[in-house]
Amino acid sequence: FWVKIQHARPEGSKLRAGKGMNLPDSQLNVSSLTPTDISHLTFIAKHADAVQMSFVNSAHDVTLLDEALSRVKGDHLGIVLKIETRRGFENLPSMLLTAMRRPKVGVMIARGDLAVECGYERLAEVQEEILSVCEAAHVPVIWATQVLENLAQKGMPSRAEISDAVMAHRAECVMLNKGPHVIEALGVLDSILKRMEQHQTKKRALLRALRLAQNGR
């Protein structure tokens, strides 16, 4: 098929091999669980604690994974639903109900593909809804994609990155990407999250006494 580039950087962009393609306006009747995935499950069941399902789109996808894990004696494994498509976001409630038949379930907000699928201007709203649904279901959330990316890669964070790391406090887990300064990024993230523990739990403000008010007495 033909691909038409409608937007690129002024200096141009490269299409590299092995990259994915998002089709947000199309509903593809393709299973998220591939034959290669299934062939790996035997090893995973013996050596891992959990399995993450990428591009999960429906409760049927979750059922297929659950059945495949049962066949390889992987009923003890936790599963993480990686939400990275519009369809996956829209079907999250039904997917959670299916996944919660297992004892251990988590959700990853994969904000890279999710932004492409839903639109960058909607990403903030979408991630808030995922956090709310998972909090109601008592399902832990992994906050992922480009958290403190500049700091991990270049050693200096942007102001927006710091604000984003603050927002990550509402999740149970935050994922950092690798980089030459990732240890420093981990320390900064730890400091931010510890400070935020005094101000907020999940999406609820704790209304802690402000140091400004205390110092002004």
Rank of each mutant, 00 (worst) to 15 (best):
I142D: 01
A213G: 01
L77S: 08
V126M: 08
K104E: 07
S26E: 15
K46Q: 14
N57I: 00
M95P: 00
M108I: 09
K46G: 01
V72Q: 10
I162G: 02
E161A: 04
D25V: 02
E117A: 07
K46P: 00
L81W: 03
G187S: 05
G179N: 06
G187N: 13
W143A: 01
L207M: 13
L65Y: 04
E161L: 06
I162V: 13
I192Y: 07
F43N: 11
L15G: 07
A209E: 14
L64W: 03
D66C: 01
A99G: 05
M167G: 04
M100I: 06
W2P: 12
A209K: 15
V51R: 08
K202C: 01
V107C: 04
N91L: 06
I38N: 05
R9T: 09
Q146C: 01
G119H: 08
G179I: 02
N57Q: 15
Q27Y: 09
I130C: 07
S32T: 09
Q127P: 00
P180T: 09
C134Q: 08
M21S: 11
Q52D: 03
P103I: 03
N57A: 10
A50D: 06
L97I: 05
M53D: 00
K104G: 00
S163E: 12
S94E: 15
F1V: 13
P180I: 11
L97M: 10
L15N: 10
I142H: 01
D49H: 11
E161S: 06
V107L: 07
N29S: 12
K19R: 15
L97W: 04
I183F: 08
S13N: 15
N91K: 15
Q127L: 08
S39E: 13
G119N: 06
A144K: 05
Q214G: 00
D49E: 13
Q146Y: 02
G119I: 05
S58W: 10
V141I: 01
L193C: 02
V51Y: 08
E67R: 14
L148H: 10
S58H: 06
I162P: 00
P180C: 11
P35A: 05
L41D: 01
V80Q: 07
H7Q: 15
R102H: 03
K73I: 03
C134M: 07
E128P: 00
M95T: 03
Q6H: 14
I44T: 08
N150S: 14
F43T: 12
Q198S: 10
R204Y: 08
R87S: 06
L148M: 05
L77Q: 08
A17L: 12
I192W: 05
G155D: 09
E11K: 12
K73W: 06
A152I: 01
R159V: 03
K14W: 14
Q127R: 15
L92D: 06
S32Y: 06
